[in-house]
Write a protein that binds this DNA or RNA. Sequence first.
DNA 1: CTGAAAGCGCTAACAT
DNA 2: ATGTTAGCGCTTTCAG
Lengths: 337, 337
Amino acid sequence: MSGQAVTLADVALAAGVHPSTVSRVLSRPQLIGEPTRTAVHEAVARLGYVPNRAARQLAGGRVGSIGVLVPDITNPFFAQIVRAVQQGCRDAGQTMLLADTDQRADEELSGARALAGSVDGFVVCSPVADMKGWRSVVGDTPLVLVNRRANGISSVALDQRAIVELGVQHLRDLGHRTIGVVRGPTAYWSSRERDRVIRTLDGITVLGPVAPDFQAGIALAAELMASSVTGVLAFNDVQALGIMAGYRAAGRSVPHDLSVVGSDDIAAGAMSDPPLTTVTAPVQQLGVTALQLIEQLIAGGGATDEVSLPVSLTIRRTTKAAARGAGTHLARRGEPQ
Amino acid sequence: MSGQAVTLADVALAAGVHPSTVSRVLSRPQLIGEPTRTAVHEAVARLGYVPNRAARQLAGGRVGSIGVLVPDITNPFFAQIVRAVQQGCRDAGQTMLLADTDQRADEELSGARALAGSVDGFVVCSPVADMKGWRSVVGDTPLVLVNRRANGISSVALDQRAIVELGVQHLRDLGHRTIGVVRGPTAYWSSRERDRVIRTLDGITVLGPVAPDFQAGIALAAELMASSVTGVLAFNDVQALGIMAGYRAAGRSVPHDLSVVGSDDIAAGAMSDPPLTTVTAPVQQLGVTALQLIEQLIAGGGATDEVSLPVSLTIRRTTKAAARGAGTHLARRGEPQ
DNA sequence: CTGAAAGCGCTAACAT
DNA sequence: ATGTTAGCGCTTTCAG
């Protein structure tokens, strides 16, 4: 019947103490004497009391929930992060409010605005809105960025330099001379970051920017086929899968006609045919770390922290040794210097 | 600076009216005169007022948020539903609280308990806990079930009969005589429902129950290869993809050695090689309908409603005509009657 | 260590 | 059509 009926007052009555005492037992147990404390706990358990979070919040305490924003929950990469965060929340007795921002800066900000005041803190994945906007929206609510870096704000991000270097080096080790690297949307920090790395590398054919989705990957395949590139590092796995599909559709084959390296290591990559060679991201970790950071911030241990997570190469079957001498002189032609 | 500072009272002051008037303008505008209404709106906009949801809830009004529970957000099927619901929420100015239940009955209930009282209603996807538990947890908070049916509770579900029949019929049309149908976890309503349908069909080889994931699909492949089955309807796409991977790993090929039909039509299915033939579910619709139902319930238009959504067959490349005569007599042996 | 009292910001009867 | 008056359930001073 009653989904929400027993109140703190009920518990107090049952335990024979004052409501404020019950409140204290629940928030700062160490301030309360052993006997009363157990009595209260017993009453709580017996009545099945669940604190009313609205009241708790209104009274100025913690809300007990954190807001998570993602560009696209349908993207396995973000889904996994969300899952990790949610599990952490559960273990910490928190609840998670999720908003999908559709990768739009305005949705990001308005989503955050709607949640501000209902959450203890924000975990924001790959935000595209500018940080000025963010600061003004969240005020002094703790904020943690995932896969984006910004001055004075705590964040967890993947080591973008390592992603590019690992992918390119693997291709080089296989003897590829004309290596393509696909740029992602410039709205992403990760993308801009990779661009900086790419610039430091020699003999790279830069492609894109290309949207990090399947369709865009397919479209990119044609461009790739017309080029002298024999090995490519995609912006992410989904895009890599698209490239493969494009090749297949054109009667070409991966890795025979093109070696492909993805990035992220989503489940679908391991399931593809051939299974995708990729730069594996510690996605779980990303979520867990974000949660740790935000908890820490909420607790007041307010040092802002920028953590970078290492990635690793997972070699499957979409990369193979370059045909002997293939592409070598074309490389010189296609990519002077 | 201020993430949450202007209150309703501030607005009232600015607009030169009483707080309750502001409240009314925001909740039931039609009760307020045109001039005051615009004045208030103007003040709201000017001050950048955002209602405090905790206070709103505590005062007994709408919370403005709905709770969504899913077994596994990492599953694209659920991710898509969540996305649809979230978009709907956004358009309706609601916010969505999401909990991932890890497909465990206890998590389902405790998740709901934590959210009860913080949401206007629940949308619960493929719940496994018994309805008695649910009722006691949610009390009279509106509740909508997705892909599960229960007496007296509103729900949206896929037409499970059609899923089975469409899949099996397609296989039959291709000349397959020994057709396997994979059962899902019995905790799922959809699974139990399909079982009932399967029982009404003749000449079906029933497999499983098998978990609806990739690994389980791979494991199932061995069993399938040892059987006389030439065409199979998997419980869902991910499982189907697993079966394909198992065949590939064993040097066998789909559809040459086995025709495979999936169910759901997740993105990864269209990206696989060969692309997966599947029974397509209107996933978007599932989410949208769920949201409509819950809104309707919240608004008090409280008729419980059980809507069933049609599915359709999407033929891609994992099914082909059976080898002439293949499996015919084996079918008789394998599945008497 | 534990009562008592005062709101948090809002909505909902009830007045007028 | 708008002002008045009470709280919603909890945390937090402040006393004792």
